[in-house]
Design a protein around this nucleic acid. Sequence first.
DNA 1: CTGAAAGCGCTTACAG
DNA 2: CTGAAAGCGCTTACAG
Lengths: 331, 331
Amino acid sequence: MVNISDVARAAGVSKATVSYVLSNDPRITEQTAAKVRKAVEDLGYTVNHAARALSVKKTMTLGIISPAYHGSYLSALFGLHMYLLSEQAAKFGYDTLSICSDSGDQALNKAWASRKVDGFILMDVSDDDPRLSMAASLGAPTVAFGSPLDSYGLDSVDSDFPKAAQHTIEYLAQEGHTEIILLLWSRSIFRRKMGFALRFRDTILEQAKIHGITAHIVFPEDDESDPSVTIAASLRDYPNATAMVLHNESATIVAPQTFADLGVHVPDDLRVVTLFPKQLFTSMRIPFVSIDIDVAALVETAIMLLLSRISNPNAPMVRQAFDFPMSLKYQ
Amino acid sequence: MVNISDVARAAGVSKATVSYVLSNDPRITEQTAAKVRKAVEDLGYTVNHAARALSVKKTMTLGIISPAYHGSYLSALFGLHMYLLSEQAAKFGYDTLSICSDSGDQALNKAWASRKVDGFILMDVSDDDPRLSMAASLGAPTVAFGSPLDSYGLDSVDSDFPKAAQHTIEYLAQEGHTEIILLLWSRSIFRRKMGFALRFRDTILEQAKIHGITAHIVFPEDDESDPSVTIAASLRDYPNATAMVLHNESATIVAPQTFADLGVHVPDDLRVVTLFPKQLFTSMRIPFVSIDIDVAALVETAIMLLLSRISNPNAPMVRQAFDFPMSLKYQ
DNA sequence: CTGAAAGCGCTTACAG
DNA sequence: CTGAAAGCGCTTACAG
């Protein structure tokens, strides 16, 4: 494989000069720069990544640390995030290293200690996430996807779930509903202390109380449970409910079929509100009121924050919460 | 950050000895090895990845190259593949670098030339995929996900779509169907010359002819089209069809609801056969005959083939096609 | 304006 | 059984 010495020889200059040309150092004359560029072109030279990283102490790669349970349940969101993160990072010359591990804090520690990445994106952060304190204590540039109660001084990006919950209840109150069903993420998600689930639930309950709405909470036992069973049971248990709020990915996917099976007509028999990223609506027929989650916007912000943090480790912490608009969608 | 010299000093040995201990070289006495290990432990030392990579010319990272169109359509499969690849690679000490680009061949060229990875997994390979010839001409260890007509001597892994097509027709013939609807991947997938779509279609048609079955082909225009429209239209256009074969991810997701909306009862009114990875069935109610695609098995094989290829570049090429069993599932 | 040289942090023949 | 030294391929003060 051709290296910088080969290029230097071919161009009749020193390695240093080649290096300077490659970094567009203005001290090199256009004349010699041209010679060097020609040699680079002719030989098909590309900088050796490890050598450069060793020398400049920058790897131009970002570590994406995901918890291990993704394999077990259907999450179209996971792929979407990974894809967009990689694409967005590439715009700034960064690659993404995906690290999927059930001991994310150890994985993070190792990746940082071996200097394999310049910073981290933490996916699916929970309230007691060990990755948070690990990243903070290492002083590794990190942005968390999620809204942990204590972010240990790390930057974070999330949808504004409390705001969404508030919009939802205000909308339903305005429509005159007084009894609703709240179908939430599975118990295992709550057990894992995922902020998006906790914050949404808590705000819904708080706002429901304020607006005099009775909210019945139901959720599947775990990620493998069939959510349509939960939907059906809840309609049986709370026959007077006039609306349902869905905050559960797989439940939202099976909901249309479930209602059709049960003979429940949306929205005449039941008003349904869902929280879902708009990308997933594309090929799904969901005639519900929905609150769009713009994953691309979240990802762009996450990458931007991480790159700022890398270049300026001491800037003040930022927590970015996106308040996405609620929209009516009848397809 | 602590380096090998710090460890050597703390243990009272040379850098070389530390290095030998780390690689379990049997020539080092257990006594000095213990000293070194203690120092490593005390100082929290981890090998600098770039330095090691530069020295041994191995990066212990695998490049996963995905085409750029994934962002636009719902593919739960994408996330599943990325996750499992990363997890599987980790078992062998490898990390995965995700490279999402619309010019995958250039991205591959660059990643290889800069020696950032030891080999590649190509996702979603098509018949005229420029990544194939690029990887082959570079001599980069590579395994393709898919069944390109010409694999340029590269290893590949795929479900055996022709076999699945054959099973499907044999099954339907045995049930006595003589007229069926084939709902395939969108026109844009065919335009992209994706092998899984082409091979499945061709074999279905060939086998149908053999068994005296009339097969009507329909497909959505592109990935953004609502596949339920296509389903409904096909039932209108071919009222005598007694079975439908679904080979289209989003169509399979919306199919249950669509049939319910149309008052079509499966399987009494219509026999439906789908091809789908079993992980996606978890939270979906699809009372259809299905052919399981075991993504984990595919991924494990892909990683295994790639690692063999890396350690033995001249081994004979292997094309692994998985013939997954057809199974009845009524949930 | 360009080049010689040191240094980044490892590994690995080679001596002893 | 252990260490000194060269080498991996870059970058970057520092001279000139």
